Simulated assay, not measured.
Amino acid sequence: MGVILGWIILGLIAGALAKLIMPGKQGGGIIVTMILGIVGALLGGWLGSFLPFLSSNTGGLGLGSIITSVIGALIVLWIYGLVTKRR
């Protein structure tokens, strides 16, 4: 349970950082940004598991986890912007 809560908190932080890095009109609002951040953190964690210098075997919230989570959130935010732009 503690690991899941840690990833949720990391996802919220990653979503906020991704929104600061990539501002724009992706739509949604704070709730959508938080959800996208959590999804991005999971995506970043999964992608980071393929890069041994970024992965964290302890499951902690190290610098590698933060970097991969923000990268994942940026990817998810970018895709969300593309999808909502076409509407």
Rank of each mutant, 00 (worst) to 15 (best):
M1P: 15
G2K: 05
I4P: 02
I4M: 13
G6N: 14
G6R: 06
G6K: 04
W7T: 00
W7E: 06
W7R: 00
I8A: 14
I8W: 10
I9R: 03
L10Q: 04
G11W: 08
G11H: 11
G11L: 07
G11N: 10
I13C: 00
A14E: 00
A14K: 01
A14V: 00
A16T: 08
A16N: 02
K19E: 15
K19Y: 14
L20P: 10
L20W: 13
I21L: 14
I21C: 13
M22L: 15
P23F: 08
P23C: 02
G24T: 05
G24L: 11
K25G: 14
K25F: 12
Q26V: 14
G27K: 12
G27A: 11
G28Y: 13
G28E: 14
G28K: 12
G28F: 09
G29F: 10
G29Y: 15
I30M: 15
I31M: 14
I31N: 07
I31A: 13
I31F: 12
V32A: 13
V32G: 07
V32I: 14
T33E: 11
T33H: 01
M34Y: 13
M34R: 09
I35T: 12
I35E: 06
I35H: 06
L36W: 00
L36K: 01
G37S: 04
I38Q: 02
I38V: 15
I38A: 02
V39Q: 03
G40L: 01
G40S: 02
L42A: 09
L42M: 08
L43T: 14
W46H: 08
W46E: 13
W46N: 01
W46G: 06
W46K: 04
L47G: 07
G48Y: 06
G48S: 07
G48I: 07
S49N: 03
S49C: 13
F50K: 07
L51A: 11
L51V: 13
L51K: 08
L51S: 11
P52I: 09
F53L: 15
F53R: 10
L54E: 01
L54K: 03
L54F: 08
L54G: 07
S55T: 05
S55M: 11
S55G: 07
S56L: 03
N57Q: 10
N57R: 09
N57L: 09
N57H: 13
T58F: 02
T58K: 03
L61M: 12
G64H: 06
G64Q: 04
I66W: 01
I66E: 00
T68Q: 05
T68A: 10
T68P: 05
S69T: 02
S69C: 14
S69H: 03
V70D: 05
V70R: 03
G72L: 08
I75S: 12
I75G: 09
I75V: 13
L77R: 11
L77W: 01
W78Q: 09
I79W: 04
G81Y: 10
G81S: 14
L82N: 12
L82G: 15
L82W: 15
V83E: 03
V83F: 10
V83P: 05
T84G: 03
T84A: 09
T84P: 01
R86T: 10
R86C: 12
R86K: 10
R86D: 10
R87D: 12
R87K: 14
